[in-house]
């Protein structure tokens, strides 16, 4: 959140940069097979979409993909879904994370053109790759194809950053971020919100404060 602006560009330097950039893009395009250019999420860094700006319509309801394209590949989405559901599986009270759109949310997040999300993008993409490589090396399968106990065997090694062995440090940092995103994505859905017994966001005629049984429970009655 630095308040310093970069020095103003002169028209001359901007022209040179643009010309150089166009030249670079032509060269890059020529050296890649056409099919590869179309792959979603092939690059771990490049997000050149625009954000929603400083004056978006706040009344509308939005979905991931409305402002900028989603970029995870089908394979990455499959690993994302498996890990989401390992973190938030279905239970008696609410569905699994992937069943309520959390994969789309994580895709939206890592595809977003904002500084924090750009920072998270390589962490998530590298981490998803690591999960599959680790699954392959331990169990000869992709992470999504593992049984629950196999998934847990990997996750147990990386679920707490402060306790992870040095070899798992980077994966543990990824897991912590991924769990945060999964939770944020899940608990904001109607199903996740209901899971928390959140009963607000409705107009009330009066605000009555906590009932006596709650005061008793905390020892204030």
């Amino acid at each position: 959140m630095s308040a310093n602006d970069s020095p103003p560009e002169t028209g001359f330097s901007r022209r040179i940069e643009r010309r150089a950039a166009i030249k670079w893009m032509m060269t890059a395009a020529a050296s890649l097979p056409l099919a590869q250019l179309r792959i979603r999420g092939a690059s771990p860094t490049a997000i050149d979409a625009k954000g929603y700006g400083t004056d978006p319509d706040l009344i509308r309801s939005y979905n991931p993909g409305d402002f900028w394209p989603l970029t995870l590949t089908d394979a990455q989405r499959r690993t994302t879904a498996a890990l989401c559901d390992t973190i938030i599986p279905a239970d008696g009270k609410s569905p699994a994370a992937s069943a309520v759109g959390v994969v789309d949310f994580i895709d939206e997040w890592i595809s977003a053109p904002y500084p924090q999300q750009r920072e998270h993008r390589p962490i998530i993409l590298d981490g998803l790759g690591w999960m599959d490589r680790e699954a392959a090396s331990r169990f000869k399968k992709g992470f999504a194809d593992l049984a629950d106990n196999q998934r847990n065997a990997i996750c147990d090694d990386i679920c707490l950053e402060s306790a992870a062995k040095p070899a798992f440090a980077k994966a543990a940092a990824f897991f912590a971020l991924f769990r945060n995103l999964t939770a944020g994505g899940f608990y904001t859905t109607p199903e996740g919100t209901k899971d928390l017994n959140y009963i607000g966001n409705v107009p009330l005629a009066t605000f009555d404060g906590p009932p006596p049984e709650v005061l008793r429970q905390v020892g204030l009655a």
Binding site: P56, I59, Y62, F105, A112, Y114, Q117, G184, T188, P190
Partner: peptide, 16 residues
């Protein structure tokens, strides 16, 4: 409007 209805679940960005 809930945060589900916002891009990025309503998270802070430099725009907002």
């Amino acid at each position: 409007q809930t945060n589900r209805e916002a891009p990025l679940r309503g998270a802070s960005t430099p725009d907002k």
